[in-house]
Design a protein around this nucleic acid. Structure first.
Ligand code: SF4
Ligand code: SF4
Lengths: 157, 157
DNA sequence: ACGATCCTGGATATTACATGTCCAGGAAGA
DNA sequence: TCTTCCTGGACATGTAATATCCAGGATCGT
């Protein structure tokens, strides 16, 4: 799991705190977290493509949430950044070598290893889809949200 | 998730099918699945270190299961090969940059992003720990097990 | 109209890690 | 004693994540 997920979640959290009235530029967000601006921008673009964020070009432009926080799940952010592929990639080694001698009827039955791993991955995705940005905001200490808004007023006018 | 997990699971399955009476060498297993022998051996060594497999040196040596199949969970194999680290690594970016201005009291509270991701990961691990090698054997078509034993008699005497 | 800000997307470099190979040493059986 | 075979480290290779840069276009404030 790349660190981009952590970046994305924190950025979404900040954007949720400061609200939809104002946008935050890549440069501001990068400065907040001390991250490489150009690279962070790539991740933000991925979130835009997934509809999690919206972007506005031009002066006073930047990013804001694409929909209300209670409509954004952690699963949305993770798949936007990590891609839709499953973490367990099946290379079908059972059909190679000695396994190739097996009758074709055996391959119609889904591989047990594959379904077992998929079952675990589904449990993971289900748990991610069950938690929203709004949940994270609720659990966070209120002082963090207030500090985000104060910082925003200072740097964004 | 590296492909080593798939290799390890398939090898464990073959070892479970042929039973504890005989051992299988790295070379034989590699030939079965058409995998690079030296590299496969690295993964098998990891399984030995975790106690999932046992190894015997010398002629007619090789690997066999370290304990009965119903005592080997998928979680055991995955952690043996992928390592014990969580897939979501937290780099504590909330304490960097503007976040550093936060009072220390805020950091005593565990980060919400971190606990949310951990919760999902625990669901994944729980699901892996709930499935054993014996379960996989039961779900597999009986013809696969029979073919494994036949092949073993041909190559191992 | 004009300059400043700021997103978009492609090309490119850098780095980390997974993958893969090789070899010397030792253990066990034939 | 010869062969098989595991162990562990060193090393080479390949690939993906990470990071930087630039040209193009959009928007805003003046
Ligand atoms: S048995 Fe399952 S994990 Fe193994 S190669 Fe086939 S589909 Fe993949
Ligand atoms: S808030 Fe959570 S995910 Fe973010 S840096 Fe802190 S511990 Fe890591």
């Amino acid at each position: 799991m790349g660190e981009g997920v952590e970046w994305g979640l924190h950025c979404c959290l900040v954007l949720a705190w400061i609200g939809d009235d104002e946008a935050l530029s890549t440069a501001k967000l990068a400065k907040w977290f001390e991250l490489p601006p150009a690279y962070l921008n790539k991740r933000l673009q991925a979130l835009v493509r997934a509809g999690v964020l919206t972007s506005t070009a031009g002066a006073r432009g930047g990013f804001r949430l694409g929909r209300p926080p209670e409509k954004i799940t952690l699963m949305d952010v993770v798949t936007a950044i990590e891609g839709p592929e499953e973490t367990f990639r099946c290379s079908e080694i059972r059909q190679r070598g000695a396994g190739a001698e097996a009758p074709a009827s055996e391959f119609r039955h889904a591989c047990g290893v594959s379904v077992a791993m998929r079952r675990a991955e589904l449990a993971w995705r289900r748990e991610l889809a069950a938690q929203t940005l709004a949940d994270l905001m609720a659990e966070a200490p209120p002082s963090a949200a207030a500090r985000a808004r104060r910082w925003h007023e200072r740097v964004n006018g």
